[in-house]
Amino acid sequence: MKILVPVKQVAVLDEDFELRDDGLDADPDFIDHESNEWDDYSYETALQIMEAHSGVEVVPMTVGPEEAEESLRRCLAKGGERAVRVWDDALAGAGPATIAKLIAAVARREGADMVFAGTLSADHSFAMTGICVAAELAWPHVAVVTHLEYEPGAAKATVQRELEGGLVEKLTVDCPAVLTIQLGINQPRYASLRGVKQAKEKPVDELTPADLGVSGEDLAASACFRLRRMFKPAKGQAELIEGTAAEQAARLATIIKELKGAA
C-alpha cells in the first residue's frame, strides 16, 4: 500500500522586494524558500498511518528545480525511504493544473493507493492542485480534512471537515482518493539529527515530464489560465487627522472641498 504526498517549496518574499523586469514575478534576489506548512501536516498524516500499519510506504514528491530537493530531504529525514522530483525548465511558472497533471502521472507510475496533499500553498494559495490531481486520476476527493480514520487497504475512509461557525462535517469517501489536509490535523514532528543525516543518502528519483509520458502539448493544454501581470497596488491615501475637534473639522472640510474641486 502506497501513499503519495506531493510537497512544495514555497517562496517567502522580503518586505522590500522588487519585481522582475518582465513584471510576472518577484525578483529571485528577494525570495527565500521554505517548505509549505500545509505539507508538514499531510506528510505527518501519511507517516502516522505508515507507523501504525505494516506494509505501508510513504513517498514524498515535488515538481520543482534542484533547490526544491531540500523539501524532499526534509520529509525523508522524518520518515520514508525514497522520493520523486519532477522537473523541466519549461515548467517554470507552471500553474496548478499543469503541476497536477504531473503529480497524477507520478501517482499512476508509483501505483499509489492514496494521495495526501496540503490544502493550499502559502505562496500562491490556489488551493486547487490536490483537487486537480483527483480530476486527473478520476478519483474522489475531500478538501480541508481535519481528521482522518483510514485503515490501509480499506474501501472507504472516514474524514471530518471544519465548516463555518465551528460546525464539523463527517463523511466517508471511496478509496483510492485524494485528500487535501488542513493545518492542525496533527502535530508534525521535527526530524531527528540522525534522520537528517540518513536522509542525505536516501534516493530521490529525478524525472522529466517526458519520463512520465506527458508531452509539452499535454502540459500546454492543461494550463487553465495565463499570468498577465504581477504588481504592487498603489498605496491608499488615508490621512490621520489630528488636532482639536475644531481643527479636525476644519481639515475634514478642506478635504471635502478638495475632492469636490472647490479648493
Partner: peptide, 11 residues
C-alpha cells in the same frame, strides 16, 4: 556570496 545572503544577514 549572493545578494540573498547579504539581505538575510543585514536583517
Amino acid at each position: 556570496a549572493s545578494y540573498r545572503l547579504k539581505r538575510q544577514f543585514a536583517e
